[in-house]
Simulated scan of single mutants.
Amino acid sequence: MVKKAVAEEGHIVCHKTLGTAAPAICAGFATHPSGRTASLALRLARAGVLTIVCVQPEQEDER
């Protein structure tokens, strides 16, 4: 999954935010050495074109 996202300059969506109104980039992918440099969205955020907003997904028992 990581190799595909890196090859396509994409990212991986956080599994806890799938199906929500605000799916987020996986924090693990955002800190992965290859992921953070290859992802177009993360590069745009570092360039100031996009804004990074950190979220805390709901806990499964709170849903």
Rank of each mutant, 00 (worst) to 15 (best):
G28F: 14
Q56L: 05
P33F: 03
S34P: 03
T51I: 14
Q56C: 04
T31G: 09
V6C: 08
A22S: 11
E9W: 03
A21N: 12
I25E: 02
A21D: 14
A41G: 03
P33S: 00
T17N: 11
G48H: 01
T20M: 08
L18S: 03
A7C: 00
P23F: 02
C54S: 13
I12D: 04
G48C: 06
G10E: 13
A30V: 10
R36G: 00
G10S: 12
C54R: 15
H15N: 07
I25C: 09
H32K: 06
A45H: 07
F29N: 06
S39W: 06
T17H: 13
H11M: 13
V55Y: 01
G48Y: 00
H15I: 08
R43N: 10
I12V: 15
A24I: 04
I52H: 14
R36V: 10
R43A: 07
G48R: 02
L50N: 14
T20R: 09
L42V: 07
H32L: 08
L18W: 05
S34T: 05
A47M: 11
G19M: 04
T51C: 06
K4C: 12
T51W: 01
L18F: 07
R36M: 11
G48I: 04
F29D: 00
K16D: 07
G19A: 07
K16I: 00
H11Y: 15
H11C: 13
K16H: 09
C26I: 01
I52W: 09
H15C: 12
L18T: 10
I25T: 03
Q56G: 05
K4T: 10
A38S: 07
L42R: 05
V49E: 06
L40G: 06
K4I: 12
C54N: 15
L50G: 06
L42S: 02
R36T: 14
F29Q: 04
G35H: 07
I12Q: 06
C26S: 08
R36I: 13
T31M: 12
A38Y: 01
I12L: 15
A30F: 06
R46E: 09
V13Q: 11
S39H: 02
A30E: 10
T31R: 15
G28N: 13
C26F: 08
V6Q: 05
P23Y: 03
P33M: 00
A27H: 06
K16E: 00
L42T: 08
T51V: 15
T31E: 15
R43S: 03
A38G: 00
V13F: 11
L40N: 05
K16T: 00
A24Y: 00
G19P: 07
T20E: 04
L44I: 01
G48N: 01
A47H: 10
S39L: 03
K4F: 12
A24R: 01
A47Q: 14
I12A: 04
V53W: 02
S39K: 06
G35I: 05
A7H: 14
G19W: 11
G10D: 09
E8C: 10
A5R: 12
G28H: 13
H11P: 00
P23K: 05
G19E: 05
R36S: 05
G10V: 11
A5W: 13
A27C: 10
A38C: 02
L40I: 05
